[in-house]
């Protein structure tokens, strides 16, 4: 991909992000932070590339090692982030009986 195609994706995604995030209900802002945190760990893609690369020479081996550490860190985030989001979202309940006693 050339730079302009990538930049196009980025700019359009910023607009999508703008509209999608404004639509998020304020009551779910904490889960929003948790889930954005989990998905920003998509940086694991870069970590996997480094970890899977054939490490030639000293810097190659170091690069592979850094990649593996990054894979572990990003995994903490991915699993922890999605799990804690799921835990929070499970707590948001509707009223069981819509009728309020008084009225």
């Amino acid at each position: 991909m050339d730079f302009i195609s990538i930049l196009s994706i980025f700019v359009l995604a910023c607009f999508v992000g703008y509209f999608v995030v404004w639509a998020v209900t304020p009551a779910l802002h904490t889960p929003l932070m948790a889930v954005t945190n989990a998905i920003s760990s998509v940086i694991i893609v870069g970590a996997l590339i480094a970890a899977a690369a054939v490490g030639l020479g000293g810097s190659g081996a170091v690069s592979k090692g850094l990649g593996l550490v990054a894979v572990a860190l990003a995994s903490v985030n991915i699993f922890g982030g999605f799990a804690v989001t799921a835990r929070m979202l499970a707590m948001y309940k509707k009223k069981e009986r819509p009728a309020v006693v008084s009225k």
Partner: peptide, 21 residues
């Protein structure tokens, strides 16, 4: 850097989300 659309889309989403918050 990696020319990876998943990372770019996610980065833009998360970046704008944090900025809006």
């Amino acid at each position: 850097t990696l020319h990876n659309s998943a990372m770019i889309i996610t980065g833009a989403l998360v970046g704008s989300s944090g900025a809006i918050l």
